Each structure stands twice: as structure tokens, then as C-alpha cells.
Amino acid sequence: MVKEYLEDKKLMKSIISKYACDLGNIWEKSHMENFKLTIINKNNHRSIDFKKLKHDLNSVYDIQFGHQLKGIYMLFKDDDLFIIGNSRENIYKQLKTDFRKDEGFTQLLESNDIKLSVIRMHDMDSIHNARLEAVITDIYTKLFKAKLAQEYELKI
């Protein structure tokens, strides 16, 4: 039965158009901002200044409580994308946990140029949110490959 639906090009075009329309509507309702993260020395270890980050997030998004900030976040190290994440609960709390528990995030702290982009999602439909995250990841992956190809004069 699934095969018959996939072979029905009119139906598939309709589904894809609806999907694109849904993502477009979600994107229109979102709010994207960029932040430069401040690094501090805490107990002889480099760390993110989470107090400043919390203040910045609260002031830019005009929120009182961190749990009101849900959506997609991107971390950049020296202008290169490091990771894309998706938080349905609280981006600030997610980042704080990741920086404390995930060994990979310590690589970010080697740089003095760490940026955060946050896409606040108001309608947190988990399926569309995950799909939007996948689309953003796909775009950045293609941009990264194109940059590498240009740097090393490769043909992709």
C-alpha cells in the first residue's frame, strides 16, 4: 500500500507541498538571534559565563523564565558550525548541561570566538521542529562541503 502511495506522484507532490508550507509557517513564527558567548576562568578551568548568557537570552527574548525559550540552537567555533541542537524544554538549561557533561563541548572552550544562534520556536510541534532542525543541518552541511571544496579546490 505504501508503494502505491509513493508511486502516485500527484499525492506525493501534494504531501511535499503541504510539508513545505507547514515548515514555512513555523519559520515565519520563529525568532532568530545571535549571541557571542563570554568565556571566564572558573576554578582554573575555562567556562561559559552562564549568568551573562541567561541575562542576554532573557533580555533579547523578553522572557522571565528560561523554560519559555524552546527551539533550535547552533553553536559556532571560530565561525564554523560546531553543533545544531533542538530543545523542547529549555535551551539555556540544555546548553548548561551539555557544557558540564559532554566532553565534546570542551573543544569549544579552546576558542575565544564562540557564538550561539537561537531560533525560538513558539509552536513546538516536535515533528516539524525536528524536521526544521534537519533542514538547517542539511543546509549547513552543504555549505560546509562547498567551503571545503573551495578551500582545497575539490569537485563535489
Score class of each variant (00 low, 15 high):
Ile127Met: 10
Tyr152Gly: 11
His55Cys: 13
Asp80Gly: 04
Ile15Gln: 04
Leu108Val: 01
Asp49Met: 04
Asp62Met: 13
Ser47Arg: 06
Leu53Ser: 09
Thr97Ala: 10
Ile26Ser: 01
Ser17Gly: 06
Glu7Tyr: 08
Asp22Arg: 09
Ile91Ser: 04
Ile119Ala: 03
Ile156Asn: 10
Leu23Gln: 04
Glu7Ile: 10
Ala134Ser: 14
Gly66Tyr: 06
Lys115Thr: 02
Met74Gln: 11
Ile16Gly: 04
Lys29Gln: 06
Leu23Asp: 01
Lys18Met: 06
Met121Phe: 06
Ile91Arg: 01
Leu37Gly: 00
Ala149Thr: 12
Met32Leu: 09
Asp125Arg: 08
Glu33Arg: 02
Glu133Ser: 13
Ile63Lys: 10
Ile136Tyr: 12
Arg100Trp: 01
Gln68Ser: 14
Gln64Ser: 12
Asn112Glu: 10
Ser47Gly: 03
Ile15Gly: 02
Met124Cys: 09
Asn25Cys: 03
Asn86Cys: 04
Leu143Val: 13
Glu4His: 08
Tyr92Lys: 05
Ser111Val: 00
Ile63Cys: 09
Lys147Ile: 07
Leu69Trp: 00
Leu109Met: 05
Leu53Pro: 07
Phe82Val: 03
Tyr152Gln: 14
Phe99Leu: 05
Arg120Phe: 02
Thr38Gly: 01
Thr141Asn: 15
Arg131Glu: 11
Gln94Pro: 04
Asp98Glu: 14
Gly66Ser: 15
Gly85Trp: 03
Asp8Leu: 06
Phe35Asp: 00
Tyr73Gly: 07
Val118Pro: 02
Glu151Thr: 14
Ser87Thr: 07
Cys21Arg: 14
Asp62Gln: 14
Lys115Cys: 02
Tyr92Asn: 08
Ala149Asp: 15
Val2Asn: 11
